[in-house]
Design a protein around this nucleic acid. Sequence first.
DNA 1: CAAGCCGGTGACGACTTTGTGACGAACAGG
DNA 2: CCTGTTCGTCACAAAGTCGTCACCGGCTTG
Lengths: 226, 226
Amino acid sequence: MAKILVVDDEPDAVELVEFNLKNAGFEVITAADGSEALKKARSTLPDLILLDLMIPEVDGLEVCKLLRRDAATAGIPILMLTAKAAEIDRVLGLELGADDYVTKPFSPRELMLRIKGLLRRRETTETKAERMQFGDLVLDVPAHSVTVNNKRVELTATEFKLLTILAHRRGRVQSRDQLLKDVWEYDNVIDTRTVDTHMRRLREKLGKAAKHLDTVRGVGYRFVAG
Amino acid sequence: MAKILVVDDEPDAVELVEFNLKNAGFEVITAADGSEALKKARSTLPDLILLDLMIPEVDGLEVCKLLRRDAATAGIPILMLTAKAAEIDRVLGLELGADDYVTKPFSPRELMLRIKGLLRRRETTETKAERMQFGDLVLDVPAHSVTVNNKRVELTATEFKLLTILAHRRGRVQSRDQLLKDVWEYDNVIDTRTVDTHMRRLREKLGKAAKHLDTVRGVGYRFVAG
DNA sequence: CAAGCCGGTGACGACTTTGTGACGAACAGG
DNA sequence: CCTGTTCGTCACAAAGTCGTCACCGGCTTG
């Protein structure tokens, strides 16, 4: 699971954020000032850095700049936390290199969305199939469309994601937990039976093409190409 | 950068071409025979296909024909590679829908010129289209004018930009964030709901032609040509 | 064969997302 | 200045989606 470095000098703020992140299954590392942040970033190489703008020792912007200058940490996405909306321009300036920002006060939901967005952007480097075809079932990811026998099938966002992930891992059984992790992204508060309900809805909508969706009793679900 | 599918069964030839293409900044996908080529073309939707005429499984001409027949791959430029081609082969290749050809042995320089030529042609005809027509909706970019049923529709600058960007990426869903980035140009301070309001105004002004504007719930908006 | 697990199913209320009308600020052109 | 337009935001309503639950029937296990 992803490692996140949280840099903030206010213990209350850190605690709140840490609670939310750990709840979502992230590993959390904390730093209270700029020099500690730099040291920990270099030693632990986190997957993402949550960086408050106003911190002691070395200020957030400076930390950002220094991290970008070091080859080892240059690629780590940085999510800036700023108290003032007015600071945004500087944060997003090209020379500083923050990837996104959130203004305080923020809702945990908003924060999670931003984090997920940044982590997702990072992992899409491999040659991912953008279009998949299995007999009369066609999956077009960029168009967000599914057709069975050339007839359009309307899927909701969640259904579509579930289907594409299964199709992408076709042949291999995916446990409900795995699917929850991949489709629902770190929201580990969700019941595993929810997966079943979505599979049912998928099967219903896919009609004949539901034959691609196998149930593996006691284990999970599997997409079969043939 | 553009994605190029290289189809050839001789590893040496592939390596040479791959080296040159990667050197020029292209992303390279390879296939060693016809059926692999078809599969990869359909799944990765490359920007250009470099297709050797003499390949195992399904021969180059056949691949060409099949790719043209499939709506998803019909628009991808195909550059044919032929070893000492007889005139007939060339003609056939072009008739079957190849966009250009190069005879082996070729210089890397020559190959690059052809590839760039094809990509540019596509960019100017498709990507940077100055005039787009979808049924009774006509978009004239340089004139900054939109007509529905030959009747002029007055759009504001923002509305026009939103519409052209959507039309330009027709078929693909654009998230609100993406649209904000492209239409409002990385002005992250703007609320995503603003996109909704502009879509509403667009739909209102476009009248019947608003049918081209799809809402994809939970994801974003999509322009549909049909 | 009985008990218990497991997955399919239908229903439902809470919640999210989108459409819509309205409003005030910013701005351009007289 | 004044006036009309455009734009971003807001609040509300409508529509759609989601996660959960209870129930049932089939399958596994002992």
